[in-house]
Amino acid sequence: MLDEKQVELIHHEMDGMNSEEESARLEELLARNAEAKALFADLSSLSEMLAHIEERDPSPNIKKHILNAIQPQSHSPIRKDSFLRSIFKKLRPLPGLRYGYTFAAGLAAGLVLYALLGNNIQHGRPADISSLYGSMFLDELDESPEAVASFQFDLDEIEGNVVVKNSEGLVLVVLSLNSSNKVEALLEFKEDQLSFWGISKLDDDTNVSMESDKDYIRLTSVADNKYFILFEQQSTSLSAMNLKIVHSDNLLYEKSFMTAKKSEAN
C-alpha cells in the first residue's frame, strides 16, 4: 500500500513539480514497488489520453456579440439632463409617439407617488408597491422600440420572460413572472451604470412586495404578473443587469443581459 508521500511524489511527477532529487527518488520507488509502477503507468496513460482532447474553436459570433454589447468609449459618465426633460426628450424618437408620451406622463405620475410613498423602499425594506402603478406603462410599448435583450426561462413551476428596451439612455425592463408559488426576482445592476426610476405592474390585484437599493431591486410575488421597470442609464459604457429567480432560498435561475446596444450607449 502506497503511503501519502509516495502517491504525492507520483502525481507531482505528472505535474512537473518534482525536483531532480525527488524525480530520482521516484525512479527508485518505481523500480522496487509494483503498485507505484502501476499507478504511475495509469496516470501517464491518463495524461496522454487527456492530451488527445482537442480544443474547439468558438463561434466567431461570440466576439461580435461581446463587442456589440460593450461600448467603445468606456468608463466615462454622461451628462444628465433634467429629470422630466430627459424623459420627454428621450422618448421622442420612439416610433409609437402616443405610447411614449403616455408612458412618460404615467411615469412622471408614478415617480411622484414613488417619491412621496416610497422612501421605505429605497432603504431596502419590503414594501407594498401597489400605489406606484397606474398609467406609467403601456403594454403596447412591447412593440417599440426594438428589444435590446429578450429571453425566456422555463423552470419547474415558474416561467417567465424578460424584454429589455432602450431609448437613448432610458431602459425599460419588462419582466413577466408566472408562478403559483412565492417567487423572488432579483435584478442586480451597477449604480454607476443604471439608476432605478420606477416600477409598475400589469395586474394590480397581485400581492407583490419590493425592496430596492442603489444596485438592486427585489420583487417577491405570487401568481402571474408583468412588471415594467424603468431605469436611467448612467454612463456611456456598457450597461448590464443580472436577473436571479429564487424560490424558497434556492437560486433557480440566473442570467446576465445587456440593457443597451452598442449604438444606444453612445
Partner: peptide
C-alpha cells in the same frame, strides 16, 4: 459572452 461582458463591466 457573459464572462467577457462582466469582465469589461
Amino acid at each position: 459572452q457573459s464572462v467577457f461582458i462582466k469582465a469589461y463591466e
